[in-house]
């Protein structure tokens, strides 16, 4: 039950984009069309889940036994950077087709603050390994959902005659604000 609550919270009531403000760069930069939002969502999901597991192991199997928990920030970011590099090399060699789809997003992912945020929150919330996986998966699904919803609105905006004042970035922020208003109604879902 707890695991399902984690999923519901991370996807809806504690959505990383709309409620926690993590992972905003791709949210504003890559939501022009459905394909790239879903592509980015997929890449982020994969990396977040894997990076969470690896950093979880790093923390509990290396940092804690050595008594150097204070190296958390530095070791997590290095872990994520190395992991993204390895994924890139692996995909390029082994699954070139997938690489073609995901490749362009991978370099952007290292500095996606959602991934770093998720790995830190896993430790902060004292999750078990299984909870960590669910938390990472749920937050990435929530991220992907937010990307898709934003794209939905932006498709609509293409046909609109926007006032000069709000053209470009401002209207995207304001649309995000209105989606966030709608998401506020889901507060409390999942306990």
């Amino acid at each position: 039950m707890n695991l399902i609550n984690i999923l519901i919270q991370t996807i809806f009531s504690q959505n990383f984009i709309f409620m926690r403000f993590l992972g905003l760069c791709p949210f504003f930069g890559l939501t022009n069309d459905m394909e790239s939002s879903i592509g980015m969502g997929g890449a982020v999901t994969f990396v977040t889940v894997m990076a969470s597991v690896v950093s979880y192991l790093v923390y509990y199997l290396i940092l804690i036994p050595l008594g150097v928990e204070y190296l958390q920030t530095i070791s997590f970011i290095v872990t994520i950077a190395v992991f993204v590099q390895l994924v890139e090399i692996y995909l390029k060699k082994m699954i070139p087709n997938l690489y073609k789809v995901m490749g362009i997003y991978l370099p952007l992912i290292t500095t996606n603050c959602m991934i770093m945020g998720v790995t830190l929150l896993n430790i902060q919330n004292g999750y078990t390994l299984l909870e960590t996986v669910f938390f990472a998966f749920g937050s990435s699904i929530g991220f992907t959902l937010a990307m898709i919803l934003m794209t939905s609105i932006r498709i609509r905006l293409r046909d609109s005659k926007l006032p000069e004042f709000f053209k470009g970035a401002p209207i995207v922020f304001i649309a995000a604000s209105f989606i966030a208003i709608a998401f506020m109604g889901l507060q409390g879902l999942g306990g």
């Binding site: 919803l149 939905s152 609105i153 498709i155 609509r156 209105f178 989606i179 208003i181 709608a182 998401f183 109604g185 889901l186």
Partner: peptide, 8 residues
Amino acid sequence: LLMNVVTP
């Protein structure tokens, strides 16, 4: 409002 977002 949430369904408004999905309409497009």
